[in-house]
Design a protein around this nucleic acid. Structure first.
Lengths: 329, 329
DNA sequence: ATTATTTTCGCAAACGTTTGAAGCAAATTT
DNA sequence: AAATTTGCTTCAAACGTTTGCGAAAATAAT
């Protein structure tokens, strides 16, 4: 039974509850003899401290909230994975919440976080929401809030982002180094700030003198990326390289390339921004600039720890990228 | 501030705590007038009930534990996603735990579940653990336990599994219908019961008279599946079909097929057991027998609800499969 | 006007911990 | 021998709710 409480132990042993409590946490006040007795009984009775009682008494919970748009997304998975690892190390548990890019679910989730008195919250900024009020409520409740990946523009929030600009530049440079002249570049939804950043620095870093043709397209879904790619490679003047801003886009593009029997890197080169799991599915493996959800998670957690230690400053941190060659360029 | 409590509201309004509590939950004892007052003040003070206090008092938590080997796995993701959706609908939250196939992390996680007094636990049986003692502890604590996907052999646990046998048979029949005669069939780790079930019914359902050659192989990882496939397709007598027991295996097999330029379905057919996300990456899309983590999750949650409603019976439920044609056979 | 009934509310205990302060022996110092 | 210290233990309050029960006030029935 898990209905073993301090009280029960104390009654069996004929000592007070407080003594039991202190004995269990190895308090110096308690004699070795009683400590031993208590520990042993607690063991045989399979005592487990009641977390809710502890939380209530100490006004702290060893609990983090973590809200993602969707859990069925490799990027967020690896983020979650990183947070979970670190959380467990430090004795915290994770409350996972999905917003499904749905504003109502989002405020519902945030309410849950407040009710559960989470010690901190990692959240993604669902772009359908231009309503930060619900987030401000958690801030007002003194819950450290860290936005990751998709973050609001406002400056008064902690943010951990991928080094989008840097990554886009690395991809652009890799393409130029290979002397690509006719590039299909597929980006995500226009309204995402992440798209804007990547798009800007990508285009900007092309050397005008080398006048490569850049075909900029936007796809908000895998299948749209597939269509776009199909279209471009059915033309006579086929691109000699494809740049994909994300895994979702890469998946679509690759499907069309496979369909048309385009050989990589013979007929065309491919490079993507990705965390790597998708690029490694293909042969040759697709070159990618790593945008690691895992590293993002590690950094976010680090920032959270600092916040928990009383750091009230507002930071915006970036996770560095690196180019992973894959034989596709 | 989230430090608004019933007490505070009661003081401001000059009424008792219990009245406030009852007013907030629309108790018939309370007059409409005071209800209105209370509701309004609670609103402006942004009152949120303290979940830990509620839990302590009611001895219930609106919290489920969910332990998976790893969160970076599309199958488990869709499972998690399903559970999360249903949980939120019913006002529950989700504690996510990763075991990483590590027995120590597993017992640690189970302890966390007990300490947090979760109302129920969904768990995967990490095959490295032949130690069910930790699970028995949560059962002893009267926490409904539902194993999913990988489950122990013992009969005294609730289990929700994929209809492995059925699925394997469907795949075998699909292969025979296409008259495949030289089949490479790659299965997962031998020690997994899931492998045993799939392997048995797969082989058994082949019609002996048609004497198709079956090459049974085992791969516990993607890269091993890749190697095996490479090996078989470098022979003169190439298989005319590949069967992959899981997504991990499919990914490896496909990589080698791409590498060798084997055309699908021209040179060889491919079929897999999968939840579908991976097969849809390729062109043509790979035929698969659906083993949906999402449906598994929905069913597991249904079972959990029953348990919570006092159903003490032990069930073993199966999620039905269906064949999804994909142009790869 | 008295009793009975309903409506509305408050008291107080309980859930299982933690923790400052106080109690009380025995041991040590003056 | 009195005073102080030390070592161990207990008391009691508090965290924020929920809830059975009783009480007062308002309404209805006699």
């Amino acid at each position: 039974m898990s209905d073993t409480t301090l009280k029960k132990i104390s009654q069996v042993l004929g000592i007070s509850i407080s003594t039991v409590s202190r004995a269990l946490k190895d308090h110096p006040d308690i004699s070795a003899a009683t400590k031993k007795k208590v520990l042993e009984l607690a063991d045989t009775l399979e005592y487990e401290p009641n977390a809710t009682a502890v939380n209530l008494r100490t006004k702290k919970t060893k609990l983090f909230g973590l809200m993602v748009p969707s859990v069925t997304n490799m990027f967020y998975d690896s983020f979650i994975s990183a947070i979970e690892e670190e959380s467990r190390k430090t004795g915290y548990s994770l409350l996972i919440l999905q917003s499904n890019d749905n504003p109502e679910a989002e405020v519902e989730n945030l309410k849950l976080c407040r009710q559960n008195r989470v010690s901190g919250l990692f959240a993604c900024y669902s772009f359908e929401t231009n309503n930060l009020a619900a987030f401000d409520k958690v801030k007002a409740a003194d819950i450290p809030l860290i936005f990751f990946d998709k973050v609001p523009d406002q400056t008064d929030y902690n943010k951990i982002c991928l080094a989008d600009k840097e990554a886009a530049v690395m991809a652009a440079e890799a393409l130029q180094k290979k002397n690509k002249k006719n590039i299909l570049a597929i980006f995500g939804s226009r309204q995402l700030s992440i798209t804007k950043r990547r798009l800007e620095s990508f285009t900007a870093s092309f050397d005008k003198k080398k006048n490569a043709a850049l075909h900029i397209e936007h796809a908000h879904s895998t299948s749209l990326a597939e269509d776009i790619t199909l279209q471009y490679f059915q033309k006579l003047d086929k691109p000699d390289a494809v740049f994909c801003m994300s895994d979702e886009i890469l998946m679509g593009a690759m499907k069309s390339l496979m369909r048309l029997g385009i050989s990589i890197p013979g007929d065309t080169g491919v490079i993507a921004l990705s965390d790597g799991s998708i690029p490694k599915l293909y042969y040759p493996e697709i070159a990618f600039v790593e945008t690691s959800g895992y590293n993002l998670g590690k950094l976010a957690f680090k920032r959270m720890s600092e916040c928990l230690n009383g750091d009230k400053e507002i930071h915006e941190d970036l996770v560095p990228s690196r180019l992973v060659e894959g034989g596709s360029l």
